[in-house]
């Protein structure tokens, strides 16, 4: 399809979104990521039955925690699509890229630069 999506998106492949842990999300922010989103299969279509539901719950937990520590829960998001929906994948990437650009850089990254 040769679809383009923002080059700011770095893809980390996992066997299933059920593998994504809250710790992975938090570490990404600690290391300076401006936003994190998980893209899972359509709800009800998980090959492992509940992987994408687990991911959604973990994303929700991460949102709450990031709000508490002042990073902002809106920087993390869960999306669902089927593996045949390339255009939608690109659309989600653009949506997230735009949202993060509006929010600005990760405050942790800025604070670390200031401290250095």
């Amino acid at each position: 399809m040769r679809l383009s999506y923002p080059s700011s998106t770095k893809i980390i492949r996992v066997p299933c979104t059920g593998k994504v842990d809250i710790l992975h999300i938090l570490r990404a922010f600690e290391k300076g990521a401006d936003g994190v989103y998980a893209v899972g299969c359509m709800e009800g279509d998980c090959h492992f039955n509940s992987g994408n539901f687990r991911a959604r719950k973990r994303v929700e937990q991460a949102k709450k925690l990031l709000d508490t520590v002042g990073v902002g829960g809106e920087r993390v998001q869960m999306f669902n699509l089927s593996s045949a929906e390339g255009p939608r994948f690109a659309e989600y990437a653009r949506e997230m890229d735009q949202r993060i650009r509006e929010l600005g850089p990760n405050p942790i990254k800025l604070a670390m630069k200031k401290a250095a």
Binding site: I22, L23, L26, R27, F29, E30, L65, L66, T68, V69, G70, V71, P107, I108, A111, M112, A115
Partner: peptide
């Protein structure tokens, strides 16, 4: 790990 990561981010911030 979760608590330590959250605390680190809070205090850096």
């Amino acid at each position: 790990g979760i608590l330590a990561s959250a605390l680190r981010m809070y205090f850096i911030n």
